[in-house]
Amino acid sequence: MDPELAAALATEPYAHLRKGVPEGMSLSEYAREARKMVAVLAQHYEKQLEESRYMVADKTVSVADGQIPVRIITPTSSQSDETYPVLVWFHGGSWQVGDLDMDDAHLRTIAVELNLVIVNVDYRLAPKHPFPIPFEDSYAAVKWVGEHASDLKVSLDKGYLVGGDSAGGNLAAAVGLRARDDPFFAGRPLTGQYLREPLVVHPLAVPDKFRSEWRSFEENKDSTSLPSAAVIQALDVYGASPTDLRLAPLLASSHAGVSPAFIQVMGMDALRDDGIIYEKVLREAGVPTRLIV
């Protein structure tokens, strides 16, 4: 790591939170501390925002056995009939922590800068709501957006996107794979997926043909951003079978026909090679891709 960056991270007040839930700290205590870390980022983005340039509305989406909140961020326009592309967003947090506020200020900035509607999904969290509940909640939210596009000032033809960060990137990739084969999307297909440092395969289920390329989990096992041990801990709590495609979209027999993918990974992250390998698999299946390390 660059020495200047290493020194800066070492003095960050919340550096200890990046390694997962510290020993002796409850999950609820960890979540409260993590919110403080997010607040620092939010202050940065809020300085760039002008509230007159967007509107925010919180709504609820019906899921299999209840309801979940979503937050809708819509750019403002002088034209009352203006419609926008939409990004359905899933936050990170190891499927265990996070909420609508986690990426809120950042998403408001993106909505204004890129002129698109963002639907931020507050899927239910493990361990109270283990796999497949976070996935199924996320999938239901994407279909809800498709059903209510006109009410949301959304034109699906302009863009019907899913995206997420880390665990949220996992959810977005898994949603994108299932949507390819769902008749619901036959006349309104997803047009893109934005996967930021996604997990796409369980460490116990990496196919032999990818083992030589899947090196970052060991190389970066002590990463400051997310150690490998924290990934394993999160997967154990999430409770998915290592070979379930709702967790491991890399294991699909074919990836042809999934929506175009923009993938970002970090060079010193344990999940780096998940994204690199997934981009390669999609590209070789004929899917338009772009990868940034």
Rank of each mutant, 00 (worst) to 15 (best):
D137G: 09
L116T: 02
K158F: 07
K153P: 00
H148C: 13
N120A: 00
D137M: 13
D157S: 15
A179H: 08
L116C: 13
A140Y: 12
L177V: 13
P203R: 09
S150I: 03
G169S: 11
P183Q: 07
P134G: 03
V201L: 08
K143S: 01
L199P: 14
A167G: 06
L161M: 13
A173I: 05
T191F: 10
L152D: 08
A172M: 09
N170G: 15
V200Q: 10
L190A: 04
N170E: 05
D157N: 12
P203A: 13
T191D: 11
D137R: 04
D137V: 03
D181R: 02
A167C: 10
R196I: 14
V119W: 00
L195R: 14
A149M: 12
I110V: 15
K143V: 03
A111V: 06
L107I: 11
E147G: 05
H148S: 02
P132I: 07
G159R: 01
A173L: 12
Y160C: 13
A149C: 09
T191M: 04
V175T: 13
D182K: 11
G159L: 09
L204I: 08
R196K: 12
P127F: 03
A173R: 01
S166V: 04
L161Q: 08
I133A: 10
G187D: 14
K143P: 11
A141P: 03
V206M: 01
E113K: 04
R108Y: 01
L125Y: 11
A149T: 07
